[in-house]
């Protein structure tokens, strides 16, 4: 008790003291914003690692794909694994191709459409995984400053109430309350600024990856369409 009274008397202005002096709402706001910051950086680290990994996988797969290796062989090695990105699209398309040919496809157009659908679904699923949690980054980035501002407003309100109570406009009475209130905005900005920057960067990265996937899907679709034509032509001629 005495210790607290002494601290209050000397107006300790360290960060921790400011936090401890704050009211319940301001404290909640601060804790929430710190949590948001932790979440933001968790997403940032996760996305950064994921995107780097995805880019590496894309490069590797494209290298293998364009190396002239047989697609059947590639499919056989890849089909057992859990695939991401381009490999997943390739496997999905090849699976559809296989299924259709095993049962004996009637129409080349239908086959082409099915393969495209399968690739589209896989692609959208992959894209979704890339863009996952970017929304929360956007939310933190846009709402963080407002939440901090809310904490500040509440803190300043209480500090003004304290002024009204003590009936002293001395700066020493006003300053700690305002400093503690401004701490909320500061934490909000600390959480929001990296969130906004990371959101912009990762949406751009995700866009690049999906456009790369789309490009691959189109190319692969073209290759498969050629294959379909080549394989179905003799059959139709035989009939």
């Amino acid at each position: 008790m005495e210790q607290a009274a002494l601290e209050a008397a000397t107006h300790d202005v360290s960060l921790w003291a400011l936090f401890m002096q704050a009211g319940l709402i301001v404290k909640l706001v601060m804790v929430g914003l710190i949590g948001a910051s932790v979440w933001t950086w968790a997403i940032v680290i996760d996305k950064y690692l994921n995107f780097a990994k995805a880019r590496r996988q894309f490069d590797q797969f494209e290298q293998v794909f364009w190396s002239g290796q047989s697609l059947e062989e590639l499919y056989r090695t890849l089909s057992d694994r859990q695939n991401n990105g381009l490999a997943a699209i390739f496997v999905a398309a090849m699976r559809e191709w296989k299924k259709s040919f095993e049962r004996g496809a009637r129409s080349p157009i239908g086959l082409q459409m099915r393969i495209d659908r399968a690739m589209d679904v896989t692609m959208s699923r992959e894209a979704e995984s890339y863009e996952a949690r970017l929304g929360s980054l956007a939310t933190i980035g846009s709402a963080g400053p407002f939440i901090g501002l809310f904490g500040t407003v509440v803190g300043i309100m209480t500090s003004f109430q304290a002024i009204a109570g003590s009936q002293s406009t001395n700066l020493a009475v006003v300053a700690p309350g305002i400093a503690e209130a401004l701490l909320a905005t500061a934490i909000g900005l600390v959480a929001a600024i990296p969130a906004v920057m990371a959101y912009n960067k990762f949406t751009a990265d995700a866009g690049k990856l999906s456009s790369r996937m789309e490009g691959f899907a189109d190319e692969f679709s073209a290759i498969l369409s050629r294959q379909i034509d080549e394989k179905l032509q003799p059959r139709q001629a035989a009939q």
Binding site: V38, W39, W41, A42, I43, V44, I45, D46, L49
Partner: peptide, 10 residues
Amino acid sequence: ASLTTSAILH
């Protein structure tokens, strides 16, 4: 892993 990393960093 990234969440713990972030928490530790904070």
